[in-house]
């Protein structure tokens, strides 16, 4: 377990900022308790200072997880967000997409969001913008990247992809072995 280097934190912050924008500051500068990012075996954890200090005393091979796993670094140094970060993304998300009940299951099985399943979308969402996907009853289901801007979606046919799938809560079951 170690703090992130500058390059690593840049990668993590740019990825997070594509979903929550300037709200990223609220993750770092929290009023309740100091939180920090820690790297443990290519995984990035967001953890309170108190539990981080407890975790210091655990040897590196024995430490499985601590705090919230935000994602992992690939071998080529890219950062990929895991579904476990959804709680924080949903809380601070700038752009949101709501999908109809008939589109929930296809999305939860790892498919992209089609226009036919689109219930609502935040106004003036740009193209290739990170969005959090909600059900119509405001339950966060996952996140993805918009394929078109809000304006462009109006002209599309119902089978066109609106949001590229990145992660969904179905991964808790599908990727149970590798997720944590």
């Amino acid at each position: 377990m170690r703090p992130l280097t500058e390059e690593e934190s840049k990668a993590v912050f740019t990825k997070l900022a594509s979903y929550i924008g300037k709200n990223l500051v609220h993750l770092i500068d929290r009023p309740d308790e100091p939180y920090c990012f820690r790297l443990q075996k290519d995984r990035v954890f967001y953890v309170s200072e108190a539990s981080m200090r407890l975790g210091i005393s655990v040897a590196r091979p024995n430490l499985v997880s601590l705090g919230t796993c935000f994602g992992k670094f690939s071998k080529s140094g890219k950062f990929k967000l895991h579904i476990t970060v959804l709680d924080y993304l949903a809380q601070y998300a700038k752009y949101k997409v709501w999908i109809k009940p008939n589109g929930e299951m296809p999305f939860l099985y790892g498919n992209h969001v089609l226009k036919a399943h689109l219930g609502r979308i935040t106004e003036d969402t740009p193209e290739h913008q990170g969005v959090v996907v909600f059900s119509m009853s405001d339950i966060p289901l996952g996140f993805g990247v918009t394929a078109r801007s809000t304006v462009d979606t109006r002209k599309l046919d119902p089978t066109a992809i609106i949001v590229f799938h990145q992660a969904d809560v179905g991964e808790y079951l599908r990727d149970e072995e590798t997720l944590f």
């Binding site: 703090p3 280097t5 934190s9 840049k10 770092i28 500068d29 920090c36 200090r53 210091i56």
Partner: peptide, 21 residues
Amino acid sequence: DPTEAPVGNEQKTALKLISSM
């Protein structure tokens, strides 16, 4: 960086990094 250093410094550098980005 040392893991056991106080988190406050880390926060400062992170905020600086964000503002520069």
